[in-house]
């Protein structure tokens, strides 16, 4: 899932300082799963900001709505009524949501409530970790199912580098060395031959370096 972290409340308050009526738009997708932008978090944020403004003697009218997904035109279309008459919408979706809202509603001022952080998963309750670098050309079959592109701080493809010690990365003792993990796993699976092979430089044109990406699937297109 896409993992996002809410911006500090004071920062969001600053961004809507001159608004009188604001829509807080949650998303029932990834941000619900990572507990940062679902229905519950949306209600909590709207309430907190309404109370803050009340205490400041500058009341704020809030509307709340949680879309099934903010990354899908049909669910963003369905918001046509709730965006009416608001000075701004604060989107609690990942970075995709505010952009879909901006594209669908040209006159609407959109504000991001989240810092979209990474593609990953939960490790334990309340802890999420990054797992996928979205590089566009997966190498997990070569690395024992551990991603060196994003879990190695240097995205090295022929690791581990000389900074790996006691299974940790040189950037910090709380960061696991991805290549140490890869080594341990391939050893266990008796596939260290994969690590002995020289890996060519990656084709980064498949990643963000090649420009904004697009996936077109003619087989599922309608009409």
């Amino acid at each position: 899932m896409i993992v996002a972290e809410q911006k500090p409340l004071a920062e969001i308050a600053g961004m809507i300082g001159d608004c009188r009526k604001v829509l807080f738009a949650g998303c029932a997708g990834c941000v619900t799963v990572c507990l940062s932008g679902g229905e519950k978090e949306t209600e909590v944020m709207a309430t907190a900001l309404r109370m803050k403004r009340q205490l400041e003697g500058n009341p704020l009218e809030t509307v709340t709505y949680t879309a099934t997904r903010q990354c899908d035109p049909e669910y963003v279309d369905a918001m046509a009524d709730v965006v009416k008459g608001v000075d701004a919408v604060v989107s609690l979706a990942c970075g995709v949501g505010p952009q879909y809202l901006a594209a669908r509603y040209p006159d609407l001022w959109v504000i991001p409530a989240q810092n979209t952080t990474f593609a990953g998963g939960s490790k334990e309750h309340g802890v999420w970790e990054e797992f996928c670098g979205l590089c566009g050309q997966c190498v997990l079959h070569l690395t024992g199912g551990i991603c060196p592109v994003i879990r190695c701080s240097k995205s090295i493809l022929n690791g581990p580098c000389g900074g790996s010690q006691y299974g940790k990365c040189e950037i910090g003792k709380d960061v696991e060395c991805a290549w140490h993990l890869i080594y341990e796993r391939l050893k266990r699976l008796d596939r260290l031959d994969l690590m002995r092979q020289y890996r060519e430089p990656k084709d980064w044109s498949k990643a963000r370096d090649g420009g904004p990406r697009k996936v077109t699937r003619e087989d599922v297109m309608i009409g």
């Binding site: 430089p201 990656k202 084709d203 980064w204 044109s205 990643a207 370096d209 090649g210 420009g211």
Partner: peptide
Amino acid sequence: KFGNHPTARN
């Protein structure tokens, strides 16, 4: 993209 190393990172 326009050069001779289009697979490079930028």
